[in-house]
Each structure stands twice: as C-alpha cells, then as structure tokens.
Design a protein around this nucleic acid. Structure first.
Ligand SMILES: [Mn+2]
Ligand SMILES: [Mn+2]
Ligand SMILES: [Zn+2]
Ligand SMILES: [Zn+2]
Lengths: 145, 145
DNA sequence: TTTAAATTGAAATCCGTTTTCAAACGGATG
DNA sequence: CATCCGTTTGAAAACGGATTTCAATTTAAA
C-alpha cells in the first residue's frame, strides 16, 4: 500500500476512535514504513532510538498494536518467542518460508493451498476465519554451505 | 503408538543418553499417555498432583522436553502463549483445525496440501524441514449458536 | 553397602509483553 | 492566545510462561 494512503488511513482511524495524532505516532509510523518487514518491537524501537532517543519502548509497543487494530499492520509469530509486525498489503494475503539457518523470510501465496484449506475445513464442519502456514527449512544459500 | 512400545522407547532413550529411569518419569509418562492430547505443562502437572502431590512443576516441564527430544511427544503452539504437547504417532504427521470459540481441536492430514507445500518451497529454492499449518475458525457447534 | 552422578522441587530468574501512574501533550473552546 | 480536560507518554513495575539454580534426595554402578 502507498505510504501516503497508509498514513491517512491511520489518521482516519485515530479520528474515528477519538484518539490523538501525536508526534510519536507519526514518527513510529514513518519508521515502520521505511524499515523492512517482519520486525519486532525491539527492532523498531532501536531504529527509532537512533534518531530520537526520547521515544519509549512502551509507546512503540502500543503503537504497533494500534497499527494492527487499524489494519495497516499485521502481527506475526515465527516461533522465536517474539512478535513481529509487517505492513498490510490491503486485502492481499501471504504465507511464509523461513530459513532455519539464516533466518531469511520469503513470502508466497498459493491459491491452490488456500482452496484446499477451505475444503478440508468444510469436511470437518469448520468455517475458517484465518490460518497460519509456515514452512521451515533451508534456503538455497544455506543448503549448499 | 502402543503404550508399551512408547514406554520402552523412552526407557531405551534414557539408557542411550546416560539418564536415569525414575519414579517421577514413569508417573509422568503414564499420565501423559492416559490424558487427552494437546495439553499444557500446567494441565499435566495439575492432573499428576491429584494422585501424587509430591511432584514438581519443574520436573513435569523437564520431562515433557525429554519426551519431545526422545521423539515420543511433540510440542505445539496454538497461539495462546503456552506450549502444548501431544503423543507422537510414529511417522504420522497431522495439522490442526482450532475453533476460536470453544477451543476444540480437530486433527487432519491432507497429502495434496503437503505436496503443494514441497512444490512451493522448491520454487523458492527452499527444502522444507518442517511446517506448521493451523486453521482457525468456527466448529459446527459454535457456528450455529 | 558405598559412591558418584543424575534428579528433584521450591524458589529464583529469565525475558518478552503488558500495565501503572504521574507528568506532558493535543486539541477543542472561548 | 489561555484555559481546560481527556489522551498520551515513558520509566519502572508487574505479569506469565519458560527455564535455571542449588541443596537435598534418589538412582544404579561398583
Ligand atoms: Mn510477510
Ligand atoms: Mn495434534
Ligand atoms: Zn538461509
Ligand atoms: Zn467450537
């Protein structure tokens, strides 16, 4: 999603919820969109500190949760015990390939798998709300090493 | 897997590792196999306490990790922040459907999905070591309520 | 037995997450 | 502007599950 679009969506969200637009929230969103994906609260906090030492971890944490609530970010868990966030691609969905050696994360989307998930769920009387699919293995670089 | 088979596999594991067979480990394995699947350390600990108040949480925790190391149990994470364990079905693999309302967990296995996972990974140069597929939604009971 | 090593369990510690609370800020109002 | 009130901030504390510590106990080999 375009940065400008994302920013205005967040502004609108704040308005609707009776929340305030603050210097910190703008800084955090700016840096979140600038930085690469799948970063932890700590990651983002450290990046922000470099430019603005007056920002608190708690604020970064709370703001990332606001992003998720607003729909401009998604929280992920890749099994290393810490939450990670990535910017939402509007209605786009994707799953992840994770290299267990170097930590590299590759995103993919496979409509066939998505479809089969729905079918399997239906066979068991379930309707799916969301899912999580993560493939852990070795990326090409790490496999030949 | 048969209980007897599982128990001897664990005994053998202990021997190979130079570990000792203790009263606690036998009690814990016994109760683990008796209880239903997908239970947390706390769950198992509480069940054990009823019959034997002299057992410690730390021991249950350590023993479950031993089970996993030995291959007779598998650790799972369903996103509620606590680890769960289930007995291994030898080489059998399965994934999970989880009802977000009542917590019901249904196991399934779909070779078509498994196959597509391998293909998708290969397309990105990955070889898969393991994966995690969880479908969250509403079971038939909870949907009509 | 005796002995050395492994195990136990209560309590302490770890570590990411979340909350608390007093001070600072945002923005609506006149 | 100046005032006011609800919101936000950030340091520190609390939280919660996982893990470790360590002195006492148990295991099993000698
Ligand atoms: Mn992603
Ligand atoms: Mn299962
Ligand atoms: Zn790699
Ligand atoms: Zn249900």
């Amino acid at each position: 999603m375009l940065k400008t679009r994302t920013k205005s969506k967040f502004k609108e969200f704040l308005l609707n919820q009776g929340l305030k637009s603050t210097q910190q929230r703008e800084l955090i969103l700016e840096e979140f969109l600038r930085a690469g994906s799948h970063l932890s609260t700590e990651d983002l906090y450290l990046r922000l500190r470099k430019k603005n030492p007056r920002i608190g971890y708690a604020t970064v944490h709370r703001t990332l949760k606001l992003f998720a609530e607003c729909g401009i970010a998604e929280q992920r868990h890749f099994g290393d015990g810490q939450a990670r966030y990535e910017a939402s691609d509007q209605d786009e969905h994707h799953d992840h390939l994770i290299c267990v050696t170097c930590g590299r994360i590759v995103e993919f989307e496979d409509p066939r798998i998505e479809q089969l998930q729905v079918e399997v769920a239906a066979e068991h009387g379930f309707s799916i709300e969301r899912h999580r699919l993560e493939l852990y293995g070795f990326c090409s670089d790490c496999r030949q090493a």
